[in-house]
Design a binder for these strands. Structure first.
Lengths: 195, 195
DNA sequence: GCTTTCGTAGGGCGACTGTCCTAATCCCTG
DNA sequence: CAGGGATTAGGACAGTCGCCCTACGAAAGC
């Protein structure tokens, strides 16, 4: 097994553990155990824990870009693409109720730790924001595309936050329906929702 | 200085540090330093760190109840009371942009740690939810009061999450205006927003 | 064949964690 | 002033943290 394969495996495991237990609560030993490696040997692949974090964020950025590209190709219309985004709340509802949104929880943790990589983590949000803004612009809402993108992104974050606290699946479905209705209203009118 | 006074001081400092740096990242030594006590001496006031967490959550519950009571007495109409809630996003914008919402960030951290007190922390959300539902019911929306309460609570959470990531004060003000407009629409119509 | 390189195992390092104990000090009461 | 419970300081304790080093094994190139 090559070193790059092991490295990829470490990043995969770290990604999952950072999501499920948090960055700080995940130790080298935890990652090593799940990968099946000696903990001391990590130094060969990553000099520091922050380096692992950097690799995890980079992988998430790459995975997110790929996912957005798939959504762009699979969905015919901009509205359907936005729906693809909205529906991750349903698709990932179990994990969200248990661990929250992987992006916001990481951003929040790094913000509290005042970690150097906190802006990099926020870059994941920018990826979604820009992609969503692109879709709203394609819907003819060039003027306020970014505001609309941030609005729908904000809603998904709010739903994730309360879903984690209350573990209420019905709440998620109700709010997703509400987001769909909102999106439909945006499509059929050009009035600004933001005064 | 009595022991109860020292205890209160410990809880105050712990509350702030848990908010700004997170529960796990805050050590006994950190709290001791800010309070000005010997770290070993904590055992006299609190047997475990979890006990401090419990006291912090209890104090937040108490403070929140008091705040909601003040809002209830200061605002004449239910709509104005809900506006009081919405405007904490503006009033606390600086801290929110730096550390996020104190309730959701604690809930998320405890959920990831699978901590025994995670449900207690979620109880803070219940406090807001029930209070908001009470106001919506007073607005004549008894049928979907809780859904409306969760909706506005969800929005505040989403705004807080993105405000932390992007540190964008204009975004907060724009979404707050949007929430005000939504609230106004709820007042002047009895149609269900949630199909 | 031998040697070089790659990847790993295992453990040591100082620092820090939450927890716990003990001895000293404070302040209130008699 | 003397006694005694309340409160404190300071450090010991075992465990874990991220980090770093060295020796071993397994391939691969000459």
């Amino acid at each position: 097994m090559g070193a790059s394969e092991t490295r990829r495996q470490i990043v995969d495991v770290a990604d999952q553990l950072f999501y499920e237990h948090g960055f700080e609560a995940t130790s080298f030993a935890d990652i090593a155990q799940d990968v099946g490696l000696s903990r001391g040997n990590f130094y060969y692949h990553f000099k520091t824990k922050d380096e692992i974090l950097g690799a995890v964020i980079a992988q998430r950025m790459s995975n997110t870009r790929a996912m957005l590209e798939v959504w762009k190709q699979e969905a015919a219309s901009p509205a359907e693409r936005i729906l693809s985004f909205i529906h991750i709340l349903i698709a990932n509802r179990t994990k969200i109720m248990a661990y929250g949104c992987p992006v916001s929880t990481l951003c929040n943790e790094l913000a509290k730790l005042d970690h150097a990589a906190k802006d990099d983590a926020a870059g994941l949000f920018s990826l979604f924001r820009d992609w969503l803004a692109q879709q709203f612009a394609a819907l003819g809402r060039e003027a306020d595309a970014e505001a609309l993108a941030l609005h729908i992104l904000m809603r998904s974050q709010g739903v994730a936050a309360l879903a984690t606290a209350f573990c209420d699946e019905n709440f998620i479905r109700r709010e997703v329906s509400d987001m769909e209705a909102w999106l439909h209203a945006q499509c059929s009118s050009s009035s600004l929702p933001h005064s």
